[in-house]
Measured scan of single mutants.
Amino acid sequence: LDITFHVDGKNIHVHGASEEVVRIIEELIKNNARAEEIKETLERLLR
C-alpha cells in the first residue's frame, strides 16, 4: 500500500488511501501529531 500525504498551508492532500484513512490522517495532523505517530497509526490500521 502506497500512501502519500503532504501539508500545504492548511490543506492536507492524501493520495492512495480510503476516505476513512484520509479522515484519520487529517485528524492526526490537526492534532499536531508527529510524522512518526501518523506512520505508526497507519501501520496499525493497515495490518
Rank of each mutant, 00 (worst) to 15 (best):
L1Q: 11
L1V: 14
L1C: 06
L1I: 14
D2W: 14
D2E: 10
D2A: 09
D2S: 12
D2R: 10
I3T: 04
I3S: 02
I3Q: 03
I3C: 06
I3M: 10
T4W: 12
T4G: 05
T4Q: 07
F5Q: 03
F5G: 02
F5R: 03
H6I: 14
H6C: 10
H6S: 10
H6W: 15
H6T: 13
H6D: 11
H6L: 13
H6E: 13
H6Q: 11
V7L: 06
D8K: 04
D8Q: 06
D8L: 04
G9V: 00
G9F: 03
G9P: 01
K10I: 15
K10T: 14
K10V: 15
K10D: 11
N11W: 15
N11I: 13
N11V: 14
N11R: 09
I12P: 00
I12T: 01
I12H: 02
I12F: 15
I12G: 01
H13Y: 12
V14S: 02
V14H: 01
H15G: 04
H15L: 09
H15C: 06
G16A: 06
G16S: 08
G16M: 05
G16V: 04
A17R: 01
A17H: 01
A17W: 03
A17N: 01
S18C: 02
S18I: 04
S18N: 08
E19A: 13
E19K: 12
E19I: 13
E19F: 14
E20I: 06
E20G: 07
E20C: 04
V21L: 14
V21S: 04
V21A: 07
V21H: 06
V21Y: 05
V22E: 02
V22Q: 05
V22G: 03
R23M: 09
R23T: 06
R23C: 03
R23A: 10
R23E: 06
I24F: 09
I25H: 00
I25W: 02
I25G: 00
E26D: 09
E26I: 14
E27P: 00
E27N: 13
E27W: 15
L28N: 01
L28E: 01
L28H: 04
L28S: 02
L28G: 01
I29G: 00
I29V: 06
I29H: 01
K30S: 09
K30F: 13
K30M: 11
N31R: 12
N31T: 09
N31E: 07
N31S: 11
N31D: 06
N31Q: 11
N32S: 10
N32I: 04
A33G: 06
A33I: 08
A33S: 08
A33V: 10
R34F: 06
R34C: 05
R34I: 05
R34K: 12
R34H: 11
A35F: 15
A35L: 14
E36W: 14
E37I: 13
E37Y: 14
I38G: 00
T41W: 12
T41G: 03
T41V: 12
L42V: 08
L42H: 00
E43M: 15
E43P: 01
E43F: 15
E43C: 13
R44N: 06
R44I: 07
L45E: 02
L45D: 00
L46Y: 08
L46A: 04
L46E: 02
R47N: 14
R47W: 12
R47A: 15
